[in-house]
Simulated assay, not measured.
Amino acid sequence: MTLDFAEGDRATLLDQVAAMARQPYGYVVTPNVDHVIKLMDGRVAEDVYRGAALMICDSRILAHLARLRGKRLSVYPGSDMTADLLASGHDLTFGVFGPDRAAFDDLVARYPARRFTYIEAPMLTPGSPEWDATVKTACKADWDVLLTCVSFPKQERFAHALRVSGRPFGVALCVGASIDFLTGRQHRAPKVFQQLSLEWLHRLLSQPKRMFRRYVIEGPAIFGWFLKTEVFASPGG
Rank of each mutant, 00 (worst) to 15 (best):
M1C: 10
M1R: 08
L3R: 10
D4A: 15
A6D: 10
A6F: 04
D9H: 10
T12C: 00
V17G: 10
M20V: 05
M20N: 02
P24V: 12
Y27D: 02
V28H: 07
V28S: 07
V28K: 03
P31D: 10
D34F: 04
D34H: 14
K38A: 05
M40Y: 10
R43T: 10
V44D: 06
E46N: 14
Y49E: 10
Y49L: 09
R50Q: 11
A52E: 02
L54Q: 08
I56S: 09
D58Q: 01
R60K: 09
R60T: 02
H64Y: 09
H64K: 14
A66F: 11
A66L: 11
G70D: 13
L73A: 13
L73H: 13
Y76P: 10
Y76C: 09
G78S: 03
D80F: 08
M81T: 09
L85K: 08
S88C: 12
T93S: 09
F94L: 10
G95C: 00
V96N: 06
A102S: 14
D106G: 13
D106N: 15
L107K: 07
V108Y: 01
A113R: 14
R115W: 02
F116K: 09
Y118N: 04
Y118C: 03
I119A: 00
E120Y: 03
E120D: 14
A121W: 04
P122E: 09
P126Q: 12
P126F: 12
S128G: 11
W131G: 14
D132M: 15
V135R: 11
A141W: 01
D144W: 04
V145F: 07
L146M: 07
F152D: 01
F152I: 11
F152W: 02
E156T: 01
E156L: 08
V164N: 14
G170I: 06
C174I: 07
C174T: 08
A177W: 09
S178P: 01
S178E: 00
F181H: 02
L182A: 04
T183V: 12
T183Y: 03
G184D: 06
R185G: 15
H187D: 15
H187R: 15
P190H: 07
P190L: 04
K191D: 10
K191N: 08
V192F: 14
V192R: 13
Q194C: 02
Q195P: 00
L196T: 13
E199M: 05
W200R: 05
H202F: 14
R203V: 06
R203L: 04
L205T: 02
S206P: 01
S206H: 11
Q207M: 04
K209M: 00
R213C: 04
I217H: 05
I217K: 12
I217F: 09
P220T: 01
A221M: 13
W225M: 12
F226E: 02
F226N: 07
L227E: 04
K228V: 11
F232M: 13
F232W: 15
F232N: 05
A233T: 06
A233Y: 07
G237W: 04
